[in-house]
């Protein structure tokens, strides 16, 4: 059964990076286009738009962290 556990852990760590990456990209796409739209009206919003655009990056950072913890903390205990 240990092997099933290993497979599940590895797949989860893969999924956590891929899915959160996609989620962050999707969110940033919307924010980015909205920010560009706002910028055409008011150019000085550039800096605010830039900061807002990176806010969803937290999602993928958490995903990466979860995946690292799964691979380097959880996995060694199963092996």
């Amino acid at each position: 059964m240990a092997e099933l556990g290993v497979i599940v852990v590895v797949l989860s760590s893969v999924a956590s990076v891929i899915l959160t990456g996609l989620a962050a990209a999707w969110a940033e796409k919307h924010i980015g286009s909205a920010a560009i739209g706002a910028m055409t009206e008011k150019e000085e919003l550039f800096s605010k738009g830039l900061v807002l655009t990176v806010i969803p990056e937290t999602i993928v950072i958490f995903g990466l962290t979860v995946s690292l913890v799964l691979l380097f903390v959880v996995l060694p205990q199963l092996l």
Binding site: E57, T58, I61, F62, L64, T65
Partner: peptide, 10 residues
């Protein structure tokens, strides 16, 4: 607080 994990991740 967890958001500061980005210091490592970036």
């Amino acid at each position: 607080i967890l958001s500061y994990v980005r210091l490592m991740a970036i």
